[in-house]
Design a protein around this nucleic acid. Sequence first.
DNA 1: CTATCTTTGTGCACGTGTTCACAAAGACAT
DNA 2: ATGTCTTTGTGAACACGTGCACAAAGATAG
Lengths: 255, 255
Amino acid sequence: MATGRTHRPATRSRGIPEATVARLPLYLRALTALSERSVPTVSSEELAAAAGVNSAKLRKDFSYLGSYGTRGVGYDVEYLVYQISRELGLTQDWPVVIVGIGNLGAALANYGGFASRGFRVAALIDADPAMAGTPVAGIPVQHADELERIVGDNGVSIGVISTPAGAAQQVCDRLVAAGVTSILNFAPTVLSVPDGVDVRKVDLSIELQILAFHEQRKAGEDTTESSPDPAAPPVRSASGSRKGPDGDMPAVMPA
Amino acid sequence: MATGRTHRPATRSRGIPEATVARLPLYLRALTALSERSVPTVSSEELAAAAGVNSAKLRKDFSYLGSYGTRGVGYDVEYLVYQISRELGLTQDWPVVIVGIGNLGAALANYGGFASRGFRVAALIDADPAMAGTPVAGIPVQHADELERIVGDNGVSIGVISTPAGAAQQVCDRLVAAGVTSILNFAPTVLSVPDGVDVRKVDLSIELQILAFHEQRKAGEDTTESSPDPAAPPVRSASGSRKGPDGDMPAVMPA
DNA sequence: CTATCTTTGTGCACGTGTTCACAAAGACAT
DNA sequence: ATGTCTTTGTGAACACGTGCACAAAGATAG
């Protein structure tokens, strides 16, 4: 999985475990596919296979929502789609703004998964005046000065940040001040937000590093650098600011 | 946090808990920033604040790597950077291929976080013959027919999939057959891979849905649809294939 | 109506992860 | 040297998530 988490560890929302909530979209996707193929019912075993999880876990997850299955038969596909959608809040319209229309922001604006689940891109916002007016994915980019007005006028409560790391906290503060209470952060920074605001983080660099760790394990054990203490602990110096491989600040999103 | 997980629940790699591994990149980033500012040492408290975690958790995480701190003082920044980099396998070069150069693939190719951590984009691959030769982020796109050769020639062990969902499994199979053993999947599909292959998943749609869930909770309790049983359980019909909001198949990546 | 068969829903045990709280280690001053 | 002060490293308690295994529920057939 490719995500860091930064949710309030506070009160487990009305008894549904966080881990279950994170899987509901997975079930929903599998169910939607079944629905399109006009499959009327599905067993926990089948659905679990489609969603890539253990069937016992799936049944337990559903049990938190209520008893929506029929023993000996399985689950009614349409009914479950509705129940999960409702539980996730997808039966209502969620206007979102995307701030930072670089390569990634443009990709997000074009992302079909938004519209197909009740998420509506209300506005694209960028700090570069030269971009103002340019349509991306059919939506004209607006200048950052308009941020507060846009959020207010559209009742936006979810914001997506795809700016460079340096701008992220500032953008975040403005979004929050304007009324946004949920943020999806693609910038590689730790955002600090007041209580009551949810932040979720997507970090490409971190995902790759985790893969590299396991990859090293698979290749390792016999290659360079064996288990115990390493070969060359480098000087342990008085830190000479080596401005190393991270001194860059790439166009889109540095790590 | 924005990631689904699909790692082998198998043997916890040499005693370092998976949760700890997932946080190491976070520490590394904070440490790199300190290093650039020439800060020689840092306490667990300070570093934890910078990384957005609890200090006790940070100390326990580091304790799995060894005793790299000095009581009464803290941790040597440079030394820790090296130790964590080594543990994550970032001291070596990881050639990666990106398959599917749509909006998202292009964004990834331009992503600075790759190069800055030992990841090198060895090739960009797309199935569209019209794209072949077109440079993206300075790298010419190659046709999918070349996939096996590219992976073999460059010794690629990590692949990134940013194709539409429909093509993902097929691309995945070819990557694995060619020798790739770690996959970062951006397509909204469950990939099935043989044992020994790691898959991590980044799913934008899922992250937004999780945010929507919490958002609904915050706004809810008094708005539409109260707690117990909902207003209108829809017919529970014999599934009339309503080909609803998901009948689309957007350019980049449907959900 | 009874028997059989399928599949759900869940009690329970286990493993993983988090947090507290404190003893031990070392730095530093005197 | 000795004492004080800071901060690490970790034992132990707790919380959370997972998976087994089975009883109860309902469908279906005879």
